[in-house]
Every structure is written in structure tokens, then in C-alpha cells.
Design a protein around this nucleic acid. Structure first.
Ligand SMILES: [Mn+2]
Ligand SMILES: [Mn+2]
Ligand SMILES: [Zn+2]
Ligand SMILES: [Zn+2]
Lengths: 155, 155
DNA sequence: TCGGCTATGATACTTGGTCTCAGAGAGGCG
DNA sequence: CGCCTCTCTGAGACCAAGTATCATAGCCGA
């Protein structure tokens, strides 16, 4: 549990960036999380792992990992930004479950027809769209168990 | 040019909130803007209009107007939040032109089929989705005038 | 193993808001 | 119209989420 996965490490290298102990810690924490982490939350987790790692490094690392296509941001309800380790390559979108916090990837191919239609209907060329959609995943929704009867999900 | 439109004023009242000179100034500035205003930008404009109006009031007013369904937030590219006076009633979405900064409304009905499809394909119940899509409007895109030949649009 | 170039930490600064609390004033009611 | 209540306001402290600077540390290709 001391290092990030080889997959992540090789993607950092592939993006022409260096592997450092700090990046390893941060990538590992994101990899271990089952949901997007907020900035403060992540900084706290990093500090717990190694208090010598500075805040600036956390944000720099997030930026580096984002450039490498490893990390994505989702804007959590409430307006905060969540940081998320992404397996899927290339541009895609996110379904965030408000129950368990889990994230599902939506491939660009699934939204493309919708965007093409918008372009026609509004005479507008779409340059950039990135969706984060909130809701409830199948596991959290049931099956058959009404919402009110379920125990409070992890926050 | 000293007051916001009656439409805006009556919608504030309809939401059970009071009309104050401060709110009038802020609503009027948003109404006059042809594009979303950033926080700093709006605060500066408010201060120019009446320097006694405090920052807290600006943000409180934005929150009040948002609750009244008059103001919407869009996240501008670059991450900043833009505040925007909305004519359209009810939940809807926004197309932001990167050329002129103008905003077009997309009715919920236009995105609903897309969301229904996502729900089926991902076994996920969508509770909340709010899209801001960046691109180029028809006026900024042409007609026939290539992008490189156009003069720099308003920032 | 060495050296260049990238990454880091400390720290100060900035942006975009929120909180508190005493005081002002909007507007419903008589 | 004038009062009273309840909302709204301003000042200013506070906070979260970054960003800028710069000297130092250390990754990794040769
Ligand atoms: Mn993803
Ligand atoms: Mn709108
Ligand atoms: Zn779930
Ligand atoms: Zn335009």
C-alpha cells in the first residue's frame, strides 16, 4: 500500500513527468479512494501520510496528473471541486452517485449525438462540454428497497 | 437606467423577498450585461454605481436572486463562476459563446431524452444535471468569414 | 555518477466567498 | 400616514482554495 499502481506510474512517465515520492503518495491516496476527494480532504490525507508534503505540491501534482489524463475534476454539489483518479482514457464524463459517492464514466460517444443535435437546433458549434451528473446508482437505489428504508449511506 | 425592470422586481417579490436599492442596482447591472459577470467584475461594477454597497450584500443578493430563479451561475472556462440574469423560467441549461460571451438557454425538454437514455444505459437515476456548454454562436462563427480573419471579439 | 532540469517546501498573496452582529429600513397593517 | 416587525445591510474578520516566488532538493538520462 506504499505505492501507486504501475499503470498510474507509467502514465505519469508517458506524459513526460517525473515520479517522485510525493506524487506517489497522492496518486496512491486517490487510487485508494472510492469517490472524489475534496481539496482540504486530500490535503489532510496527504499530511497524515507525510506531513512534510506541502500544499502547493498537492495542487501541482493534481495539475500534473490531470495533464497526464489520470486525474479529473468534478464539481461536487455544494460547489466544491472533487479530485478523482480516472481509469478511462480520453475525454469522458461522470455520473456521481449521491448515495455512495461512487463515479461512473460516460464515454464521449454516448453524449456526442446529443451535442450534435444541440448544435443543429441552436446553430451553435460546441467546442467544449464536460458533464458531471448527480443521481443515484443502481446499488444505492435498491433493488426493491425504498429510499426511506435504507440506512444512511457513507458520506 | 436607474432601476431593474418590472419583470425582475415582480419576480423578487413573488419569491417573498424584499426590494431594496442595493438589489435594484445589482439586478440592473446584471440585466444590462450581455454576458455572465464574474464575482470581482460584478463587485467592481456595483462599487462604481454605489461604493457604500458591501461585498457581502452582493453575494447575498446573488443568492437571493438565484433562489428567485432570476440569476443563474455558469462556470466560465478557467474555473471562475459567472453570474447571469435569466429570463427563462424553470430549470434549463446554458450555451456560452466563447466569442461574444453571449448565452443561449437550452430548455430542459431538449436534454431530457438524453438523460433518460443515460439512465437506462447506466442503470442510474439522475437527480440533478446542469449543463454549461462552451462553443461559438452562429453570429461569431460566420457566416462565411473564417475564424482567423475576424477581429478580436469582446472579452 | 554526475549534472541539468524538474519538482519541492516555505511562505506570502489572491480570489471568492461566508459569518457575525449591531443597526437600518422595507413594507404590511391599522 | 405612521408604526412595528422582520428582513436586509455594512463593516470587518474569517476561511477555503488555490497561485506566485524563489532558494533548495532530488529524479533520471547520458
Ligand atoms: Mn473518469
Ligand atoms: Mn438562462
Ligand atoms: Zn451509489
Ligand atoms: Zn457569439
Amino acid at each position: 500500500m506504499a505505492v501507486a499502481s504501475d499503470a498510474v506510474r507509467s502514465r505519469i512517465l508517458a506524459a513526460g513527468q517525473r515520479i517522485t515520492p510525493q506524487r506517489d503518495v497522492i496518486a496512491q491516496l486517490l487510487e485508494a479512494a472510492s469517490r472524489p476527494l475534496g481539496a482540504t480532504e486530500l490535503c489532510a490525507a496527504v499530511a497524515a501520510e507525510d506531513p512534510r508534503i506541502g500544499r502547493a505540491t498537492v495542487f501541482r501534482t493534481l495539475a500534473a496528473l490531470e495533464q497526464a489524463g489520470i486525474v479529473a475534476q468534478v464539481s461536487l454539489p455544494g460547489g466544491q471541486t472533487g479530485y478523482l483518479l480516472c481509469g478511462t482514457d480520453g475525454h469522458h464524463h461522470h455520473l456521481v452517485c449521491q448515495g455512495c459517492g461512487g463515479v461512473d464514466d460516460v464515454l464521449e460517444a454516448a453524449v456526442s449525438p446529443f451535442l450534435r443535435r444541440l448544435e443543429r437546433d441552436h446553430r451553435f458549434r460546441v467546442d467544449h462540454a464536460s458533464f458531471t451528473i448527480y443521481g443515484t446508482c443502481a446499488r444505492c437505489a435498491g433493488p426493491g428497497v425504498p429510499r426511506s428504508a435504507r440506512s444512511t449511506p457513507a458520506r
